[in-house]
Nucleic acid binder design. Structure first.
Lengths: 117, 117
DNA sequence: GCTGGTTTTAACCATATGGTTGAATGTAGA
DNA sequence: TCTACATTCAACCATATGGTTAAAACCAGC
């Protein structure tokens, strides 16, 4: 099932819209962990953590590798890049609003290569 | 109701997790629009657009200003910044994974050609 | 006030979400 | 094979989502 880039952004932003999942991403960024180790800091059940990992995995923000009876969870940071790029488009706007720079974004340029975003 | 910064990130990322809402944000970034003008490009009902605007508004990504019987919708780009900063924390990770090795010019992993986009 | 145009609310529907508990599956080792 | 541990699946629950249509609310102008 090939996703459009819009659909992939939907999935990534949705994966990031939960505090626990963002926290898990930070955790595994620092160091690869087993599922059990990932779950340890949280008060919720292992099954709930497993669901969160599934959400992160379908957004391709983590990957798993079997190692014996454990599964090692590791970050796939490169799939955060499209989200970061989507946000970076607004840099000129917040710079202007925060009074940092005076780069006036021109109307109607610079973005139509985004497929109907 | 004061939100923690984690809760605010939840709200912002959730607001961004829908293609229509991201598209609306782009639209009003180019030019302030009335609710009706915002709705025009989309096939969904005005009520549905109104709901999307409410989601964007509670994330403080847009603001409305009454002008006669119209409401002008404008971007509040500065509230995207925390999300951008959260993502930027991973820059070092995706740089490394994409082979932009600024720190260690010589490394063990060989393949990764990874033409992104 | 009435009318016409703009936008929101209400009620509803189908589906998804984040959580639970308990059973099932996978894997390593004795 | 039996056991112990790691992880997922199944079923369920409450609430939220994104959409609809129809009614209500808001606002200018006559």
């Amino acid at each position: 099932m090939v996703k459009t880039s819009a659909a992939r952004l939907d999935t990534v932003f949705h994966a990031l819209s939960d505090t626990t999942r963002r926290s898990i991403l930070r955790d595994v960024a620092r160091k690869e962990k087993t599922v059990g180790e990932v779950a340890k800091p949280y008060q919720i059940s292992l099954a709930a953590v497993s669901k969160h990992l599934k959400v992160l995995e379908s957004a391709e923000l983590i990957a798993r590798e079997r190692r014996g009876s454990f599964q090692i969870v590791r970050l796939c940071a490169e799939n955060l890049l499209p989200a970061e790029e989507w946000l970076a488009w607004y840099e000129a706007f917040w710079n202007r609003q925060l009074g940092v720079l005076h780069t006036y974004p021109e109307e109607g340029d610079k973005d139509e290569q985004h497929d109907h975003e």
